[in-house]
Amino acid sequence: MKHQRLIFEDDFRVAFEAHRVQAAEMTIAPGDREGGPDNRHRGADQWLFVVAGEGEAIVEGRQQPLAAGSLLLIERGERHEIRNTGAKPLRTVNFYSPPAYDAQGEPLPAGED
């Protein structure tokens, strides 16, 4: 068993990984964004669950509103950006399969975990 309490204090923090799936938390301040037109995970699918806040995902040019309870799948290789469009922090839990980041939050090359 692995357990960790998510604190949502950092912009991005890897919680842990097991069986080729990685969990991370992300907090985006009001008016800020993560990613961008060239951001993509070449080797991993990303499942993003919105815990709190409001925002917008732009995936391959398509816009998707986000709110607490939203679940979004960004498939490997899809270009994406996540924007906070609300007045409070946008807090998400993200799962990457296979892992996309090392323990310090730096991207792994495609195919490495």
Rank of each mutant, 00 (worst) to 15 (best):
M1T: 10
M1F: 15
K2L: 14
Q4G: 11
L6M: 09
L6Y: 08
F8N: 09
E9P: 12
E9K: 12
D11G: 13
F12N: 15
F12S: 15
F16K: 04
F16N: 02
E17T: 04
E17G: 08
A18H: 13
H19L: 13
H19T: 15
H19I: 14
V21M: 07
V21H: 10
A23L: 14
A24V: 08
E25R: 05
M26S: 15
T27C: 08
T27Q: 06
A29L: 10
A29C: 06
A29G: 10
A29V: 01
G31V: 00
R33S: 15
R33H: 06
R33W: 12
E34R: 12
E34W: 08
P37Y: 13
P37K: 15
D38M: 07
N39D: 15
N39G: 13
R40V: 00
R40M: 01
H41N: 10
G43A: 03
G43W: 00
A44C: 05
A44S: 04
A44P: 07
Q46A: 11
Q46E: 04
Q46F: 01
W47N: 15
F49Y: 10
F49P: 00
F49L: 05
V50N: 11
V51D: 14
V51W: 05
A52V: 01
G53P: 09
G53D: 11
E54D: 08
E54F: 08
G55I: 06
G55P: 11
E56N: 09
E56Y: 01
A57D: 02
A57T: 03
A57C: 08
I58G: 02
V59I: 10
V59E: 02
V59H: 04
E60N: 00
G61V: 03
G61D: 05
R62S: 15
R62C: 13
Q63M: 14
Q63H: 12
P65R: 08
P65S: 06
P65Q: 04
L66P: 03
L66G: 12
A67H: 10
A67G: 12
A67N: 09
A67L: 03
A68Q: 04
A68F: 07
G69I: 07
L72E: 02
L73Q: 04
L73V: 08
I74N: 13
E75A: 01
R76V: 02
R76I: 01
G77H: 04
E78I: 12
R79N: 08
H80M: 06
H80D: 06
E81V: 12
E81K: 07
I82K: 03
R83D: 11
N84V: 01
T85K: 03
T85Y: 01
G86Y: 08
G86P: 05
A87Q: 07
A87I: 10
P89N: 03
P89Q: 03
L90P: 04
L90S: 01
L90E: 02
L90D: 06
T92K: 10
T92I: 04
N94F: 02
F95W: 09
Y96C: 12
Y96H: 13
P98M: 01
P98N: 04
P98C: 05
P99V: 11
P99Y: 11
A100Y: 00
Y101G: 00
Y101Q: 03
D102H: 03
D102Q: 03
Q104N: 11
G105K: 09
E106C: 14
P107D: 04
P107I: 00
L108S: 02
L108N: 02
L108H: 08
P109R: 11
A110E: 00
